[in-house]
């Protein structure tokens, strides 16, 4: 009767259930705080700029990942840009089919190297083209809470 022997009956198979029980709280950080305040209070997009590397970060960062200088130049960016890629979501996170597929796009924001990933709205999937101009649609000021969901999505510019 040794441990070398293996389980040979599926009746004896067993697993032990458990979880990692926790909840996380995330601050937006120094850059994120200012970015989301900009969205919440003024419905505008803010980026940070590294002059040395000629890069404008969106979402903004307090550092340039290229040269590691501290970024202090904040710039207003137009809430619009070009569609770099998109995907049509036919199912939700649990794998259940969506009745109406959702579309997520990556919109490269004008005058920056950055982008936002958000829903594309007001367009039939077959009408969507890489490279098309889109603009962000914000929720009304009373609905905005300072999160990425303050943006409803992107619509044709």
């Amino acid at each position: 009767m040794g441990v070398l022997e293996k389980i040979t009956s599926n009746q004896e198979l067993r697993s032990w259930p458990g979880e990692i029980p926790l909840e996380n709280l995330y601050t937006m950080g120094l850059a994120g705080e200012r970015f989301f305040r900009g969205i919440k209070d003024e419905a505008k997009l803010l980026g940070t700029r590294c002059k040395t590397c000629d890069v404008t970060y969106l979402p903004p960062r307090i550092y340039c990942q290229g040269c590691f200088e501290k970024l202090v130049n904040w710039v207003d960016l137009p809430p619009q840009g070009k569609l770099e890629t998109f995907t049509i979501l036919n199912q939700d996170r649990a794998g259940r089919p969506y009745k109406t597929p959702r579309i997520l796009g990556l919109v490269r924001i004008d005058r920056s190297e950055g982008a936002l990933i958000h829903y594309i709205q007001g367009l039939e999937p077959q009408k969507i083209r890489i490279g098309m101009k889109l603009k962000a649609q914000f929720r009304s000021s009373s609905e905005r809470k300072g999160s990425i969901q303050d943006i409803v999505g992107f619509v044709p510019a």
Partner: peptide, 14 residues
């Protein structure tokens, strides 16, 4: 990313 991407609530394979 918990701030910019996860709140959309979609399947990460997007």
């Amino acid at each position: 990313d918990p701030i910019y991407n996860r709140p959309l609530g979609e399947h990460p394979e997007f």
